[in-house]
């Protein structure tokens, strides 16, 4: 069989396109599992903050620990080989930097109120999510921007129902985003 240069280039472009779609599909698959883990956890965190505000800090620490352990388990179980989503030393360092920076400013320097903390963390998390989405896929950007907008709406307009609003839009948004990614 002989083909010319143009046909060879078309075939290679076709291969590149499929490989890109497979990689994105695998990223979406693991991300969807993590969102479906973090969605209910986040919802529980906000409900605890609303019902027992004195214990909110302990509640969030427990939820973060469970979430990080669960994310690690999902990553290990997915046997992903190489790729941007492998939970390795760099991923651990990224988490330390992420939480370190957030704690430094929200608690150490700025002393946010509980309501400000409740808005800061999801927006901060979704900022990273949105930026990552510029490389990983449009679903990340859509989920990041959507939850950020709904968080701001809740912060300014929901009064004493802010935590419950956040339980629905943040927890529910992550869960729905996970299902949506899984379908894609």
């Amino acid at each position: 069989m002989t083909i010319d240069r143009r046909e060879a280039a078309v075939a290679l472009a076709d291969i590149d396109n499929v490989v890109r779609r497979v990689r994105q599909s695998r990223v979406y698959r693991i991300a969807s599992l993590m969102l479906m883990l973090w969605g209910p956890l986040t919802a529980i965190g906000y409900v605890v903050s609303w019902a027992w505000p004195r214990y909110a800090g302990y509640g969030w620490i427990a939820i973060d620990l469970i979430g990080v352990a669960g994310s690690y388990a999902i990553s290990v179980r997915s046997r992903t080989g190489d790729g941007p989503h492998r939970f390795d030393g760099r991923m651990f360092a990224a988490l330390v930097l992420f939480f370190g920076f957030g704690l430094l400013w929200s608690v150490g320097i700025a002393h946010f109120t509980p309501r400000q903390l409740g808005a800061f963390w999801p927006i901060y998390f979704m900022l990273v999510y949105t930026i990552a989405g510029l490389w990983l896929g449009i679903a990340f950007v859509a989920i990041g921007l959507g939850i950020t907008a709904l968080t701001l709406v809740g912060y300014f307009f929901t009064g004493p129902w802010f935590e419950l609003w956040m339980a629905v839009v943040n927890g529910g948004g992550l869960l729905l985003g996970g299902f949506w990614m899984r379908r894609n």
């Binding site: 076709d14 291969i15 497979v22 992903t80």
Partner: peptide, 25 residues
């Protein structure tokens, strides 16, 4: 030589998708 079996466009895409996965997946 090009592989006649693989060169067909859909089979090329099938093989591209499967070989993009780690061994055994």
């Amino acid at each position: 030589e090009l592989d006649d079996i693989i060169h067909q466009p859909l089979r090329l895409r099938i093989m591209a998708a499967l070989t993009a996965l780690p061994d055994g997946q």
